[in-house]
Design a protein around this nucleic acid. Structure first.
Lengths: 243, 243
DNA sequence: ATCGCATCTTAACCTATGTTTGCAAGCGAA
DNA sequence: TTCGCTTGCAAACATAGGTTAAGATGCGAT
């Protein structure tokens, strides 16, 4: 099974085999990381580019009162800090949410490779523009959707994103977040997350036990949440490779 | 007084006089637009790049139930649709909030110019990464700050951003949004916006009448809101040019 | 000057969500 | 097995913010 980074970037631009190989070879130092560990702190200017290969990580900020807001989920194939160098330093932190595997790409190597391969450059910028689009949808989610729809929408999105890297073939996926992590993502309290989950289960939309999330009826959940995948910009048919 | 686009981009990279001139010359078709007019619709693939020269515009999405969520304020110097071509089409709409002046840059011309001027390319990408950083902070704002702090934070941010293009020298600025627009930005109802504004006025933090917003004590408002400008990445001293 | 429409303001009432707390269930370590 | 910790669940209560509706105010057009 190919590298999730490559699988993801193929949604953004048609990479040649040479480009895919070069990218995969650039990826070094894959290492396992436990749950709830910081990978990058606010204010850092990381030397290498980090990529999630397995598990879930997140972007987050802490507030003075101790509150935490998670601003993005990073799933396999996602970059943590692709273009920080343009901004100078991180304005937020990155942490794992579950046990994960994280790899590095030497920043120089990646830049050199990108210079020689405009299509690759395009794919990398595509990925950051999609990150931005996701952020916009999260903002809509927070601002205008009541919490049951909000959580449902987040489930629809992970399903679609994991599906795009072949990790949710049957709408069944590894999703070992805690309810507290979900609360800090949705901007509500963890006890309210619990209430909402009861409701989603009662309505037969999902099951979620032992870190495994199953969407029982994708259409029904998407209708309930008002989910439309257009903002993920997964143009082509998702990950239908020849084997 | 120089072009606000140029003034803004100078925060991102040190542009040569030639680059500044070329950019300014590329900007054509400045035209006035009334308040609350759509500039770009969801699904469009705009041929030219739009820039706000005067007034306020916004990014927004409508929801099935008629709700509107504003996801970004566009102030003079901001791009509306710089890199859409990489994503194919707009996943959200753009509208004016107040009477504005909008200019265009031919997409081809801009691409050619950027190819010859790596520093300019850098400045353009810097601008989109800052947009993303602002979006992240808005998400934190929505998720974790109670509405008085949330509105206050938005005021701190516009002040800083307008200041960066020399449009809020004394913490006094043109800000002719309606309370409804503010509500759709903050994810609360317009009557609650009104309640919150009373409070901010009562506490002597701001005045806002006749479309003019004055921050009475920048330090106090920023402390109240928990505002830290780092996410705007305005490295250098804001807009202190020789004349 | 006055009419008409936007916007702002206020009030009364309602509901979603937060807070606090206690307990149960799961699970890894000794 | 038992201990200890984290996570999930539930109930009682408190409150921020939503909804509706009705005046007030300002302002452009005639």
């Amino acid at each position: 099974m190919a590298n999730p980074l490559v699988r993801k970037l193929e949604h953004g631009a048609p990479l040649s085999d040479e480009e895919k190989d070069a990218l995969a070879k650039l990826m070094v130092g894959a290492r396992p990381v436990g749950a709830h560990e910081d990978l990058i702190a606010e204010g850092d200017a990381p030397e290498h580019v980090h990529v999630v290969l397995e598990g879930f990580a997140c972007r987050y900020k802490m507030l003075p009162d101790g509150g935490r807001q998670i601003m993005a989920w990073l799933v396999p194939g996602d970059f943590c800090d692709l273009h920080v160098s343009l901004l100078g330093e991180m304005d937020h932190a990155i942490a794992t949410l579950t046990p994960s595997v994280i790899a590095f790409l030497p920043r120089n190597g990646l830049e050199v490779l990108a210079e020689d391969h405009p299509t690759l450059t395009r794919a990398l910028w595509w990925a950051t523009l999609v990150d931005e689009a996701v952020l916009r949808e999260w903002l809509v989610n927070m601002g205008r959707r009541p919490s049951p729809q909000r959580i449902a929408h987040m489930f629809c999105e992970v399903r679609a994103r994991l599906h795009a890297v072949d990790l949710a073939p049957d709408a069944i996926m590894e999703f070992p977040l805690s309810q507290t992590d979900l609360a800090d993502s949705a901007g509500i309290s963890s006890v309210h997350v619990n209430r909402v989950l009861q409701q989603l289960r009662d309505e037969g939309l999902i099951t979620w036990r032992g870190g495994v999330l199953q969407v029982l009826d994708v259409g029904a959940l998407e209708a309930f949440a008002g989910f439309d995948a257009n903002y993920l910009h997964l143009k082509g048919p998702p990950a239908s490779h020849a084997h």
